[in-house]
Amino acid sequence: MTKPQSISVTAPINQELPMEKFHELERFIDGMETTKGGLIAILHKAQSIFGYLPRDVQLFVARKLGIPGAEVYGVVSFYSYFTTKPGGKHTISVCMGTACFVRGADRIIERLKEKLNVESNEITEDGLFTLKDVRCIGACGLAPVVMVDDKVFGRVKEDELDDIIKKYKS
C-alpha cells in the first residue's frame, strides 16, 4: 500500500455523488508521498469532502489503495468519528465521557433533544443539525463539553444552549 493505484474516475458508482468530489479525493491520495499507514488520514479527507463515507466512497478508497473493501469498512465502522450516513449542516456533539457525564452532560444532551426535537445520532427535520453523543472529546478540564462542528464550548450550562443553537441557525 505504498503507491496509489491508477484507476479511472470517469463515473462514480452512485450517480448522486458529484464527480468533482471523487476527483478531489483522488488528487489528495495521488499527492501523498506514500499511502502506507495513511488510510485514516485518507478517510478523514474523504469525509471532509463528501460529508460522510458512503459505500461507494469506501470502495473507491479501497481500489485506490489496492486493499480489500472490508479493511476500509472495518476502520470506518470502528472509529466513531466516521459516519456512513449524511448529516445535518452542523454537527452538535455532546461529550459523554466520565468527567463530562459527572458534570451534567446527560442533562445537556436531554435538553438538546427537547430543543431540537431529535434523538441522538439523528438529523433535525430542517436538516440543519445532527445531534451526536460521543465518548470523549479530550477536553475533560472543560467538562461538560459541547462541540458544534469544530468549535468547542466548555463548562456548558443548560441555560446557554439556546444561545449556542442560535449562533448556527443563521
Score class of each variant (00 low, 15 high):
Val146Asp: 08
Met19His: 11
Pro144Glu: 10
Ile92Asp: 09
Ile42Gly: 12
Ser8Asn: 03
Gly88Glu: 11
Glu24Lys: 11
Arg103Asn: 13
Lys115Met: 15
Leu65Gln: 00
Asn14Met: 06
Val118Lys: 14
Asp30Pro: 00
Lys85Asp: 08
Asp126Cys: 03
Lys151Gly: 03
Ile164Trp: 10
Glu160Ser: 03
Gly38Cys: 09
Leu116Asn: 14
Phe78Arg: 01
Lys45Arg: 14
Gly31Glu: 01
Thr2Ala: 01
Lys157Thr: 08
Lys113His: 07
Phe50Pro: 09
Leu53Phe: 00
Gly69Phe: 08
Lys113Asn: 03
Pro18Gln: 14
Glu160Pro: 00
Gln15Ser: 11
Met96Gln: 12
Arg135Ala: 12
Ile29Leu: 14
Phe129Leu: 13
Ile49Met: 10
Gly127Val: 14
Tyr52Thr: 04
Met96Glu: 03
Ile109Glu: 08
Pro68Thr: 09
Lys151Met: 09
Gln58Lys: 05
Val57Trp: 01
Asn14Tyr: 00
Gly87Val: 06
Ser120Asp: 13
Ile13Pro: 00
Val146Gly: 04
Asp149Ala: 13
Ser48Thr: 12
Asp150Tyr: 12
Ser48Pro: 02
Leu65Thr: 01
Leu112Met: 05
Ala41Phe: 14
Ala62Met: 02
Lys89Gly: 01
Gly66Lys: 00
Glu158Gly: 07
Thr35Arg: 11
Pro12Thr: 00
Lys157Val: 05
Leu59Ala: 04
Thr35Leu: 05
Arg55Phe: 15
Ala139Arg: 15
Lys157Gln: 14
Ile165Arg: 15
Ser48Ile: 02
Ile137His: 04
Leu43Tyr: 02
Gly31Gln: 05
His23Gly: 02
Thr35Ile: 15
Lys166Cys: 05
Phe78Lys: 01
Leu17His: 06
